[in-house]
Structures are given as C-alpha cells and as structure tokens.
Design a protein around this nucleic acid. Structure first.
Lengths: 182, 182
DNA sequence: ACTATTAATAGCGACTCGAAACTATTGCAA
DNA sequence: TTGCAATAGTTTCGAGTCGCTATTAATAGT
C-alpha cells in the first residue's frame, strides 16, 4: 500500500479528462466545443453569453467567441441578442445541438459502473476540490439556481431576488452565473 | 439533496482538468507539454518514447513528436537514441525540466487540503474510473513497476522478469509501459 | 457631455489535434 | 537470403484552441 499523494490525483484527473476528450474528437466537434455545448445545455437564460462560457471553462472571451461561432455555423447553437443590453448575446442550443450534447461518453459509462454510494462520495470530493480551485482563482462557482442565496419560493413558484424575476421549475435546476451558495 | 449522476461527475472532472490547465498556460508551456513533462518525470527508462507518451495521454504519435521536439527546443528534455533498436528514442528530463515538472498547481493545493482518508478514497475512485475507461478503449494501464506481474524481488533487489533486467529501487516506483497488474 | 467600464470581436503567432503519407529499422518466414 | 510486413518516428495538411493585444459598440457614472 502506498500514499495517494497530490500529484497522482492531479495526474489521474488530467488523464481521465484527456482520455475522455480524445473520444470526443470523433464527430465534427472538438473537446472545447463539446464542453461549451454541454454547458449551454445546462445553463439558464442569464448565463449563456460568450463571457459566461469563457469563465465557466476557464478560457478567454476570444476563444469562446470563435468556438461559439463555429458551433453556430455547424448548426448546434443559435445566437440571440438581448433587448435590454444590446451588447449581450445569448447562445441557445438548437434541436440538433441538444441531441449532440446528450450523446454518451466512455467516462460516463465508467462512472455508472460505480455504486450509488461511491458516486455520491466521488461527486462530493470532486465538488470540494473544484470549490477550492475556484476560490484560489477567484472564479465563480456556477452552481445550480436553486442552491443560491437569492433563490426563493414564492406562492407562484421559484423566484430570484437578485435579478427580480420569476422562474420556472426547470430553470431552478439550471446552472446560473450569479449563483452564490449560502 | 439531489442525485450525483454520471453527467455531473464527468463535467466536474472535465472542468477541474480545464481550470487546472488554464493555469498551466502561464509560463512558456501549454497544458499538453506540461502533461508530457510530468509523465516523463515519472516514467521509467523503458517508457519514455513518443509512442509511450502518446498512448499515455490518449493522443497521436504525431502530436507527441511535435510537442516533445518543442520541449526539447525549450531545453526541458533531451533526446537519446537507443543502441539496441535504432528506431527508438527516449526523452530524458533536463535539470530545468525536472524543476518545471515539480512546480505546484492549484489543483494540487486543493487536493492537499483534503484529509488523508479522503485523499485515499478519491484516489481509489479516480483509479477505478480510469481503469474502466482504459478497458473500454483497450488502453494500457501505465501502472507502477512494482505493482506488476513481472516484478520480482531477487536477492540483489527488484527485477523485471519480462524484460530480464535488474532494477534500482527508484525504478520500481516509476511508471512502466509494460506494467500488468496481477 | 465626457469618461470609464463592459461585451463581443478580430488578428497574430504558437501550438494541438486527427489523418494520412513517408522514412528507417527490425522481425519473420519462405 | 531475400522479401515483406510490422513498428518507431517524422512530416505535412487543414481546422481549431489558446494567450495576447487591439478595436468597436453599448452602457454606466460623474
């Protein structure tokens, strides 16, 4: 038996992600594009701009712009400019894009062979590591809307106190840029 | 409380790797080069060729060649041709390369804030997922020499029955391409 | 109105990626 | 021994990411 040290865990995470990505190259999307597609499929309507995508994935706005344009050209996303702030663009998944974002990967299959208990532990450990890294980078959490300080339950349903808008049940389960756990 | 499903775990792994990589861009190395450097720092003398690097990282020989040449030009690795098989090249870390490969990353810091028990569990879960993915891809394990079927303890020290060579203590702790767990 | 800030974009050079073609060396078998 | 297949490494191609540095447009603050 040997010590599971920090370097080994880091290497495992990187290798897993890399092998998973390597599979993702098949098809006409590369790993970055696939990750963006997946993010857009989970994000709420306030969190689908190039800036949000860039911050979530730890890349630059420049790359986000290019990748999203590429996705748009391939027909997986459609752009929509905001009426309120004309600088803001929101990228919505098309039907094709939604299908693509749900295609299974080898890593998912591997994870599903774990027991429920193991999965929960795994998720918790990854989440913990992620929050730690984000704190160090001053990055945003991008947690779920319903796990947010500003999330409230009014008599009409879910409500966001920060943006002062009513939400659908689905939206409460989505990723939000503004999410602050508390 | 909600279910920790496969997709979320996959996304967490990918995001962690991505944020970790994003930091890796600082300096004159990119994430792939850094990963290769890290691998070479842990691999034994039989596992340092472009092919091995490519297979470990799930990329192609072409990319491995280019990246290693780039690392060589920057002075982090040195190439050495094998006497036995003149096709084979082995890339050794230089002193500068060894320093660079040990520079800490935010993800390592995050992992080290976990308890020893958590780290062990984390490591085990990641290892399990990795073996599963590798099995699906028919990929090699690249485990440690000393955890191998062919590893033996002779009166002179560690010994590899497959390659019929004697090993140093250090080498038994290194990554080996030929490793088969048993 | 002037200014600072913010969102998105464009261009540059270095690089990764898959894929395919290519060279050199080795191994096997007739 | 000669011939051929397999293997190790390289090269080239086009598409695309990445950090970086402008640049444009819209918004916010004074």
């Amino acid at each position: 038996m040997w010590m599971a040290n920090e370097t080994h865990i880091r290497d495992l995470i990187n290798r897993l992600a890399r092998l998973d990505s390597a599979q993702g190259w098949t098809g006409d999307l590369n790993p970055t594009q696939l990750a963006m597609l997946s993010y857009l499929g989970q994000a709420n309507r306030f969190s689908k701009s190039p800036s949000h995508v860039a911050e979530y994935l730890g890349t630059t706005r420049g790359t986000a712009t290019q990748s999203l344009k590429s996705l748009q050209q391939k027909g997986y996303v459609a752009e929509r400019r905001s009426e309120v702030d004309k600088r803001v663009i929101s990228y919505e998944l098309t039907v094709t894009g939604r299908e693509m974002s749900r295609s299974p990967a080898p890593l998912q299959a591997a994870v599903s062979s774990l027991s429920t208990k193991e999965r929960q532990t795994f998720h918790q450990l990854l989440q913990s590591a992620l929050l730690d890294v984000l704190a160090r980078n001053k990055g945003r959490e991008f947690g779920l809307c319903k796990n947010c300080q500003h999330h409230q339950e009014s008599n009409k349903g879910p409500y966001c106190a920060l943006l002062d808008v009513e939400l659908t049940r689905d939206e409460a389960d989505q990723i939000c840029y503004e999410q602050v756990s508390g």
